[in-house]
Design a protein around this nucleic acid. Sequence first.
DNA 1: AATGAATGAGAGTTCATTCAT
DNA 2: GATGAATGAACTCTCATTCAT
Lengths: 216, 216, 216, 216
Amino acid sequence: MTTQRTLKTAKKNARPVRESTRAEKAENTRNTLLDAAVKIVGRLGYQGASIANITAHAKVAQGTFYNYFESRQDILDQLLPIMGRQMTEYIKSRMDPDTHGVEREKQRITLYFEFLAEHPWFHRLVNEAETMAPKAHKVYFKHVSEGYIRSLTRSLERGEIKGYTVEQLEAIAYMLMSTRTYLAQRYAFSSRGAVKPVPANVISTYVDVISRALYR
Amino acid sequence: MTTQRTLKTAKKNARPVRESTRAEKAENTRNTLLDAAVKIVGRLGYQGASIANITAHAKVAQGTFYNYFESRQDILDQLLPIMGRQMTEYIKSRMDPDTHGVEREKQRITLYFEFLAEHPWFHRLVNEAETMAPKAHKVYFKHVSEGYIRSLTRSLERGEIKGYTVEQLEAIAYMLMSTRTYLAQRYAFSSRGAVKPVPANVISTYVDVISRALYR
Amino acid sequence: MTTQRTLKTAKKNARPVRESTRAEKAENTRNTLLDAAVKIVGRLGYQGASIANITAHAKVAQGTFYNYFESRQDILDQLLPIMGRQMTEYIKSRMDPDTHGVEREKQRITLYFEFLAEHPWFHRLVNEAETMAPKAHKVYFKHVSEGYIRSLTRSLERGEIKGYTVEQLEAIAYMLMSTRTYLAQRYAFSSRGAVKPVPANVISTYVDVISRALYR
Amino acid sequence: MTTQRTLKTAKKNARPVRESTRAEKAENTRNTLLDAAVKIVGRLGYQGASIANITAHAKVAQGTFYNYFESRQDILDQLLPIMGRQMTEYIKSRMDPDTHGVEREKQRITLYFEFLAEHPWFHRLVNEAETMAPKAHKVYFKHVSEGYIRSLTRSLERGEIKGYTVEQLEAIAYMLMSTRTYLAQRYAFSSRGAVKPVPANVISTYVDVISRALYR
DNA sequence: AATGAATGAGAGTTCATTCAT
DNA sequence: GATGAATGAACTCTCATTCAT
């Protein structure tokens, strides 16, 4: 997920022409810690993300942690923004620009489920954040809802969406966000934490509903 | 949630009208603890609901707690079912039986927001439960979704809802549940935890969407 | 192990000619508690013998306990004397009075192992008592060693045991007591707490040693 | 039991002769904790060896304990092996290699009592271990009995011990172990916990018995 | 005499954070 | 900048004992 220096720092030609800069190294450690934190929160939840756990995973001493983050809460607050951006980029980069109307919504939710399948801990990261990292959660929601609203606004302007005013779009955005989250929760995760594909008829129901509600 | 007279009134007119203070007191203590727990989870989250906190609030010794609950998790698992039942009963008892169609949905979400206004901690109780009391959360969702599905099925049979099969109703139920939750989160709570009324145009947007999606 | 009232108190002929006296009932409860304590210490050790455990087993309320015993330590201190007496009586009552010399020792240790087989918790009761009920332990050891010494004195007087003075008998008694305890510990108990018969050759080695040391 | 220099002296003459204070200090803390535990178990029994007690005695914070031991049981399990080794080494190192026959036994038990006089808590450590640290107890007994058996086997081979087969030696070893333990318990400790010398005639009785039983 | 709810001290353990090296 | 030992408050839970009923 981040700059990862190759493990072999190449001991060859011992006189170092230029060994990785201090800044680089530091950045490296920082990212290692973030990576570790993301993995652990995904696996064990925020609760399980103790400093001991994170630093052990990152293979640095506990003390090192505090050279990069002010507190435990500090790093927890950074996780969701990072992963959230990654999620939205995942979807954005894979959306077909030529698809329009409700088909875009179908694509969007399908890609969302796809992302969840690849990053199963993401759902947990978001959900628990409301409690464990409220600031991060707020930022994340703002980020995602704004993306939604932008998209809906364009559809409205293009005349694909009919019968709503711009002022109503925010509420609608929240409805779409909530919907995909709950559908994932209900249909994408089995009791034992494993991920399974969301049934096609669930997706098509979603599309039906959205289509009638917005695009008709 | 509050004092419930014991079923067995027993001891067919033994001396005092006043019977079995022992059992009453015990039931009282139990309810005091549950009340305290609900309040604290609402205010500080499940995390903050330590035994020390709960018992202090209930003004009993820490040891007393374990006369009524097996463990901390035990009481946490009981909170959502209790409050969930209370919530659904609140709504059910206030629904006008003569209202039909999308108006019922409007009534339902309005009552839901009303309930939240009276029990602001309820939202937190539900949300965190997914992590902190997963079993309770699962039960709660089953309970609520089943209610929704029953209601939707009737509307479908009456011909108010058109264009969907019975199989699609579960997914739709989850969409409705999620929607009201996220709208509450976004519009009912101010940043400082206070509750505010959900704007009328948000509700009417919700009604518009549902109306077009289902009742037309 | 104690007076045990029959369970059925015979509800027949309801007018009580004479329902068990108060004193009887009390004695009964007391013994029930002692029985429960013995069983629990045998199964779980002194540590596991909590008041809650004992009273639950005896089917009385916790408070009742303190009508019969001053404290937890009080009852623990009574267990070993009771069981110790039972053990010595078990052996004494089964010893063949016509057996003499080292054969008596063989009989004694065999009966001891037999008693352990029937009361496997006895070994634990004695061993832990040194720590958990030191007073009781001291009394028990005095009791058992005095019995041994009496017996050895008679053998000495009869001329079966040769080469020792009366003053040496106490030390010898302790050697015999210790020996049978350790042999039981090593050979009578399997790792999973079960009891198994002590191998014949262990017993015969014991007899050889004792025979040469004392009776020759 | 005390400071053990780390094996790796490492850093081939880097600047200071004084190396790695870090590791030394740590080792120190560890030993302080072990020492404290040994003393407390000796004085108050395993029961009294609470973390609070141990750390207070060692003058470190309670949390520090868990930097060195996984759990309370962990340290308790380590005490007997450590002290047991110390005991056997104490005796072995002081045994006169030129002494043979029953005189060796006399020397052995005398040294045992001597060790107990110097480490009065040892007896308690061993005795309670059967309950409080069963694994450690098993290991200790194996260790000690094997030493005994080796020694007895040699005596048998040299012809000092007569009339027994190798198979009988284990039982005999247990008899010797048990004997010295019980004699110590009876004669070395006064009621108020103080240690007193075992009377000479007790030792000579022991020697008489062993001599006749084995060496004649 | 019997009850069992209430008590509160104390148990083992975890963990974010600090700081001398 | 990196280390990791030390800290101590806070956690959940147990239990002998008391006492009003």
